[in-house]
């Protein structure tokens, strides 16, 4: 009994909250609140799962990590939900020559391609869209990513309408698990699970990832015609 307890005590995979967070390098996301909740940012390698709808600024959230870090290596997009536009990549700050887009026909192939990209040491970030990653597969990706100092962003559908779906609910042996929602003009990030840290709910982020009409509105409001011009009709 005593022996088994001490074995458990000394097991290297059990992390205790009282232990000081390790002095490992982290990538800041550029949002103060979120970085604070994540102990300074996301870890530099490993798998990050993001449950989100497509098109709510989920890639822009990771802009700093994708386009500013380790730029000498490639970025792979595996199974993207649409045709990725090259001018968008350029606007995002990515060198188009450093991008590889992979469109496999099956889920299995996309997992295989992701693992190959992670293991190749040519990519620093592999972005995968997949809905059916199970525990074993995510473990494989996590190991491949950490061993080769690469990052894997896994985008999945949110489980809002699929509470009964066990695959979507289960926790995975990965570095970080996030959930994104759009509520009241802001992006809400929930940290569901993170290594060496506590979960945190509803961190509101104000991030403008598309152009807006503010400049036009401002111009219209501040440049109202004060007096009648000579040729004015009304």
């Amino acid at each position: 009994m005593n022996k088994s307890l001490s074995m458990l005590e000394n097991h290297p995979h059990i992390w205790r909250a009282r232990e000081q967070s390790q002095q490992e390098e982290r990538f800041s996301l550029g949002f103060d609140q979120l970085d604070e909740a994540l102990n300074g940012g996301i870890s530099t390698s490993g798998v990050i799962r993001i449950r989100t709808l497509t098109g709510i600024g989920e890639l822009s959230l990771f802009k700093h990590v994708i386009s500013k870090q380790r730029t000498h290596k490639m970025i792979a997009f595996v199974n993207p939900p649409g045709d990725i536009q090259a001018p968008w990549l350029a606007t995002f700050g990515i060198d188009v020559k450093q991008v590889l887009i992979v469109k496999p026909s099956t889920e299995k192939e996309s997992l295989w391609a992701t693992e190959q990209c992670l293991k190749s040491t040519a990519c620093h970030c592999v972005i995968l869209w997949s809905n059916g990653v199970n525990t074993k597969e995510s473990r494989r990706l996590q190991v491949a990513a950490t061993h080769n100092d690469a990052l894997c962003l896994l985008f999945t559908r949110p489980n809002r309408n699929s509470m009964h779906n066990s695959a979507a609910l289960q926790t995975l042996p990965i570095s970080l698990d996030l959930c994104l929602n759009y509520r009241q003009h802001a992006l809400e990030v929930s940290v569901l699970k993170q290594r060496h840290g506590w979960p945190k709910d509803s961190i509101a982020i104000h991030n403008d990832w598309t152009p807006n009409n503010r400049a036009i509105k401002w111009a219209v409001e501040h440049n109202k015609v004060k007096r009648h011009v000579l040729h004015s009709v009304s």
Partner: peptide, 9 residues
């Protein structure tokens, strides 16, 4: 670069 180009088409 163009900021009105979407990510996915």
């Amino acid at each position: 670069t163009s900021d009105i180009v979407p990510t996915f088409l």
